[in-house]
Design a binder for these strands. Structure first.
Lengths: 197, 197
DNA sequence: GGGTACATGTAATCAGTTACATGATTTA
DNA sequence: TAAATCATGTAACTGATTACATGTACCC
């Protein structure tokens, strides 16, 4: 899943290594965008933007920051009273790493790990009727999801200048639309029997 | 990631449990489609069909069948000579489990975990020029990928009746096309500055 | 018969995930 | 002040991934 290794050189002692993956960069990127954050802040921010195409579980957003802090990419402050939240900020190193990541080209193939598609590709094992039924189910599901995205997108449109988030919604819409087109094509022109490749 | 639990009742002793995930069903589904298979057969079959949208690492296809065999969903035969390959077949139970899975509706939201998109959503951290550059890179990548899919698709078209595999390719094409449209739209109409949500 | 590509496995690691448990704050 | 919601964490598990290591068959 594309994971970068980073050597950390402390003043003394041997260098340690940390692995940086998508969740690491989401944390870095979000803090870069919205400033010093608690894990909960991150969760909210994720929900409002990237979660349209990539959802990061809450727990990850609690686990990852301390890990990054230990590597010196973030600094941690803790509130004195109340919930004593842990607030994380980018260090200079952290910002450098983030910038380098943003600069670097991304050529990893993206997969659409969709269970519905998976079933369809084994669909010849079932009846043509079942395939049709399955296609209609999937169609409906993606239509519903598109509707949600459309609503969100329209809500965002009311505030001019919110483009960067909209853009992720927009990809969500295109994504769902592609599925809708696909399942429609399956319904209109169902696959024939599988001649055992 | 949608994982089913299955209780296994042996003749004697307490029932054991096995977790079934996508890789489990790919193995079951493939063996259901192409018959008794070695892990290598599975790997080949996966490569020719589902890998267009979901790639399963080779090692998984070696690890999963024994696991399923232990749970009684597959039976294992081993060649006497030569490579002494392990050939796995569906048991009755295995076929039942597969059929039930194929019958069941799939309502898990599919994500397009795309690093390029992720970077874009943090793009406001960099310069507008870099965003454009990034968009062009992504565009090219998806165009290349689409070209590959097109070629495959055409090759498949030469043999009439191969529809069920083609269908997965077709989704791959749509998927890439959606990305292409998206990145084109980003280039034509770049996002404005981020007003810190 | 020597080299190369094909094929088969395993071991170790670890990120991601689920599930659980508790605490703080608000509101009715 | 009780209930509900919001928020914060942690523990444990395990599937997936990487990397390695070896073996077999084929081809020149």
């Amino acid at each position: 899943m594309t994971r970068d290794k980073l050597e950390i050189h402390h003043g003394d002692g041997p260098p340690t290594e940390i692995n940086l993956g998508p969740s690491s960069y989401v944390v870095l990127g979000m803090i870069g965008r919205i400033g010093p954050s608690t894990p909960y802040d991150l969760k909210q921010a994720v929900l409002k933007s990237v979660a349209f195409f990539w959802d990061f579980p809450q727990s990850q957003l609690y686990v990852e920051p301390p890990r990054l802090a230990e590597a010196g990419l973030l600094s941690e402050d803790r509130e004195e009273f109340g919930r004593r939240r842990r607030v994380f900020s980018l260090t200079e190193l952290g910002r450098t790493v983030l910038d380098e990541w943003l600069e670097a080209p991304s050529d990893t193939a993206t997969e659409a790990r969709d269970v519905g598609l998976l079933k369809l590709s084994f669909g010849a094992l079932t009846s043509p009727e079942r395939i049709l039924e399955h296609a209609r189910e999937q169609l409906k599901m993606h239509q519903d999801r598109l509707a949600v995205h459309n609503a969100t997108s329209q809500r965002l449109n009311e505030y001019p200048g919110l483009r960067p988030h909209q853009i992720t919604v927009s990809m969500g819409e295109r994504f769902e639309q592609a599925f809708i087109d696909f399942w429609n094509s399956v319904i209109e022109d169902p696959p024939v029997e599988d001649p055992t490749l």
